[in-house]
Design a protein around this nucleic acid. Structure first.
Length: 481
RNA sequence: CGGGGUGUGGCGAAGUUUGGUAUCGCGCUUGGUUCGGUACCAAGAGGCCUCGGGUUCGAACCCCGACACUCCGACCA
């Protein structure tokens, strides 16, 4: 039997210290490296490749739903940022400023975009004339800067990569529909491609985006029972358009304010993948975004024919569209097994002289270490099947974890005792809609509102978990990242 | 931004109490033997002890300050 202790030594166990486990994985799986600027990290090739896969798939979904990519500048003049009152109040505390260009002191300082609503507004105002121009359905893949106080790899960095969609519509209904459609796209992406089950819902007033009329979010439950907001979709009404005086001529040649949305997902998704699927041996990557889907480990690779066979196998897989790689380094097979396990590669293929003699190879899945002896002629089919299976099993596992850590509670005392007894998780409890109660719940139980369950309209007998008055909403509460 | 913890070759640490010019393991380089769960032997390379001041004949060690990482809160993708 292998020395299991040695294998797990590299990474702090989740139960011992979840936060340390997380940063261990980020560093040891070579996803990131710190830099000399606090909160700014290098996303290394292996981490960036995950992001590239996320980008590729999401970008395809955006295009399918009729969006085009654009690129806004990174600087926003102070006066532009200040046009929408709630927006500037929300973002001002974490904005980074540029006051010099070379040796020239700027007449007006420029903010490094924390988000690009104002830039899009300025642009929309310039290009919009007629209802025939609408809708504008734009997206951009850029980085933004928010000067956070506390930083953590992927979860909260001062500069982060994201996509931000910005759309403009002639009618309120169409904009609302867009907002919800993109929320669905996000939810579908998380569940199908990342194997992360999410809760969809609207944010409470106190928690919505600065300047939005309504904010919708998808929330995922991490392995430690804390919630992570994985994506947001905002409906702005015509608030920004009024603030920026964006108008168009309708069919009757009357001037109208259009309606606007924005939506975003970030490199935080990589953090979500780590904390949803990872285990004490390291990363477990969803096949759809894994940079390497199948790693081929030759055994006794110096024996004649072994490496040739390994590369031949690799080519076959690549031709079938599977991201495959042969590790022909001098490291021992055992070392390679552990290494790719830590890096979360979904499928490992072992091939040595014995296999070659039998015209077979060994296929091992990362998630459960299940071993299969497979005929070389069946390799493509088998790997494809394993990748699909793994995605389903990962989703099921995450779903079970979430269900085991979702609690229906009807009193503050019950929330406190349940969390104490069963650990952190989602608390489902009714709420009257009063902000004072929302604050009180957070104050007394430690969990804040994550989102409102839009599928449930409380019946007359349901009462607020805090004040006992008639409930307006069923709310998911939780501790958040 | 408040409260803790940490900072010593690439990584992880010992040394700091009781100042005297740096030690160990892993990794790295070269050569050889290995190879089905992180192999082994031999020979090497690599450190202004985070940075800046101070005390001292002398500072990794004592004093002051800065910065970074990290954890727990408050705020946030």
């Amino acid at each position: 039997m292998a020395d299991m202790n040695k294998m797990v030594n590299e990474i702090t166990s989740m139960d011992e210290d979840f936060a340390k486990w997380y940063t261990d994985i980020c560093k040891k799986a070579q996803l990131i490296e710190y830099t000399s600027v606090k909160g700014c990290m290098v996303i290394r090739p292996y981490g960036y490749a995950i992001w590239e896969n996320i980008q590729r798939i999401l970008d395809g979904m955006f295009k399918e739903t009729g969006h085009e990519n654009v690129c806004m500048p990174m600087f926003i003049p102070e006066s532009l940022l200040q046009k929408e009152k709630d927006h500037v109040e929300g973002f001002a505390p974490e904005v980074a400023w540029v006051t010099y260009g070379g040796s020239e002191k700027l007449e007006e300082r420029l903010c490094v975009r924390p988000t690009s609503e104002t830039l899009f507004c300025e642009h929309f105002k310039n290009i919009l004339q007629s209802y025939r121009d609408l809708p504008f359905k734009y997206n951009q893949w850029v980085s933004v800067v928010r000067w956070e106080k506390t930083t953590r790899p992927f979860l909260r960095s001062r500069e982060f990569l994201w996509q931000e969609g910005h759309t403009l519509h002639a009618t309120r209904e169409e904009a609302v529909e867009e907002t919800l459609q993109m929320l669905d796209v996000y939810a579908r992406f998380c569940s199908e491609c990342l194997a992360i089950p999410v809760v969809k819902g609207r944010k409470t007033e106190s928690d919505k985006f600065a300047g939005a009329e309504a904010t919708y979010a998808i929330e995922a439950l991490m392995h430690d029972g804390k919630a992570l907001q994985a994506g947001t979709s905002h409906f702005f009404g015509d608030g920004f358009c009024r603030a920026f005086d964006i108008q168009f001529s309708d069919k009757d040649n009357k001037r109208q304010f259009p309606f606007q949305t924005s939506w975003g997902m970030t490199t935080r998704l990589i953090g979500a993948i780590i904390m949803t699927h990872g285990d004490d041996n390291g990363l477990v990557l969803p096949p759809a975004v894994a940079p390497i889907q199948a790693v081929i480990v030759p055994v006794q690779q110096k024996k004649e024919g072994v490496l040739d066979k390994a590369f031949e196998l690799c080519d076959t897989l690549k031709k079938a569209g599977i991201r495959a790689k042969v590790d022909d380094t001098d490291n021992s097979p055992g070392w390679k097994f552990a290494e790719y396990e830590m890096k979360g590669v979904p499928v490992r293929i072992e091939i040595g002289p014995r296999d070659i003699q039998n015209n077979s190879c060994v296929v091992v899945t990362r998630l459960n270490r299940e071993k299969n002896f497979v005929a070389i002629s069946d390799i493509v089919e088998t790997v494809e099947q394993k990748l699909a299976e793994v995605r389903d099993q990962m989703y099921q596992k995450a779903l079970e974890n979430r269900e085991n850590h979702t609690y229906n509670c009807s009193s503050l005392e019950e929330i406190v005792s349940t969390l104490e007894e069963k650990g952190d998780g989602f608390v489902k409890a009714y709420w009257c809609g009063d902000e004072a109660c929302e604050d009180a719940v957070k104050e007394k139980t430690g969990v804040g509102s994550r989102c409102i369950d839009g599928n449930v309209t409380p019946t007359d007998d349901k009462v607020c978990v805090c004040c006992g008055k008639k409930a307006e909403h069923l709310v998911y509460w939780g501790k958040a990242y």
